[in-house]
Design a binder for these strands. Sequence first.
RNA 1: GCGGGUGUAGCUCAGUGGUAGAGCAACAGCCUUCCAAGCUGAAGAUGAGGGUUCGAUUCCCUUCACCCGCUCCA
Length: 535
Amino acid sequence: MQMEKLVSLCKRRGFLFQSSEIYGGLNGFWDYGPLGVELKRNLKAAWWRDMVNGHDDTRPVYGSPTSYEMTGLDCTIIMHPQVWKCSGHYDLFHDYMVDCRESKRRYRHDQVRGRWVEAKGQRIFVTTMVEAEQEEAEVQARALKFFHLRAKNAEELKWDSGFQSLTEVEDLERVLGPDARALGTLTPPREFNLMFKTYVGALSGEEGTAFLRPETAQGIFVNFKNVVDSSRVRVPFGIAQIGKSFRNEITPRNFTFRSREFEQMEIEFFCHPNSSQDWYRYWRDRRMQWYQEMGLAGERLRLREHDPEELSHYSTGTADIEYAFPFLPPGEFGELEGIAHRGDFDLRSHMEGKLDETTQPLQVELGPEGKPKWKGSGRDLTYRDDLTGERYIPHVIEPSAGADRAVLAFLCEAYTEDEAPDEKGVLQKRVVMRLHPRLAPLKAAVFPLVKKDGMPEIAQEIYRTLKPHWPVFYDEKGAVGRRYRRQDEAGTPYCITVDSQTLKDRTVTIRDRDTLEQTRIPIADCLEEIRQRLQ
RNA sequence: GCGGGUGUAGCUCAGUGGUAGAGCAACAGCCUUCCAAGCUGAAGAUGAGGGUUCGAUUCCCUUCACCCGCUCCA
């Protein structure tokens, strides 16, 4: 499938538009049109129903280790700035970057290290990005090369500092970039704000600086105690949230895949440390199964367990659910959802202060004065099991899904070109969106076969019966075959047609989008028939 | 952020330093008794800004967006 065809269809039929298109568009922002909004709402509703609302709290489901409870939350997009300092996003998303004009590479300013060296009357700062064990040899080799010296003349190099970070160097004209041959090819450090900054209060100033959330998860962690205290849930339980998040992607690309404003569907599942591995595996498999049930059944969907070296230090397991999007090179997959075992990292960070994720066991990251770099809330976020009396910090399993990415995957998977016979029985190309009926924006269309003989009136009667229950489309214009094809493109699973036989016995045909089969049913059964087929 | 490419009607594409064409779609109507192609009619476009020019959709500059590659990717 060519991505261009899908993008074209999405625009033509009203699934997706570029944001602010009449002003030339805005990079990394997309709008959902009339069909798209229904599709996305259906997806989120299906997720909420299957994970939260419809969940049976009283017994194990889908092979869960035990029964568990599920509840929901909807918190603000702008939160206290300290939330992002303790979560680690502030440090992680506030990088200063330098670009090399020569090598076209980009480096994190604080990760470039080097030494001052003098030779032949010139003093320069030689940098490298190699591992610490090799940096001494690497820097020497690069310095020799720069000064056109042989290795045996290494003593001509006068080192006048140990290794230091590029952040301590002011004169970039005297810096030899990590991959450069010439001096002074690095640009001044530029701040990369991966979080959107905003100001709380009418007077903007640094003290009012806040951020649009880069993920919904933190709102759940900071409300953990509120939910426990107010809802009678007990561990194990999950808190779900759907909402917009914002990230200043460096390279938004590939349609909606990497958008700067996007929607997440996240669960933070709290469990006892002893059972967390079982719960991790449960959620990993359960979430995979969900996508399959919703129609991503083929080999384009895969579950990929992270390698140990890929894992955060505090995580004992992370898996991605990935889809082979058509815009990716063959064999490559894009992430739809990550299921991460996060241990007690988040709750502890909001309690004690931001933890240093490179420590084991985890310790609070300290600032220059030996105090916590980012101070936590100081609130007690431990959980007390009032049956056993045990008090502990729950471990967290985080299934975090991208709603827009899921929509995109379902659109890609649904797009099909097949052949259907025309009125002469000749096969004609047909574009059909094979969306799962639960996701389809329109559940049914109702047509009079021809616009006369009282057929429109009967068709409208059926339409009015169905419309209070689902989005249903009425169409009486043009040839019926054309109307079927239009619905195929929109992904409408069922078409009901009033014909001459309807006038005699009050029956209609119902046509299946995928098989093209038509069944004749009484008008009175339409509502129930559609209802059953949608399940 | 870098390099290359592309921006003309809702879509797919023509074309020209001098009034911008077509097919399909959509719309109004006709005709139509089950899978887009019949007839009639009307409507609709040079991404934005600036420059050169008597005149720019065309040439130049800037900008925005999209595509490809690199870079980045919590």
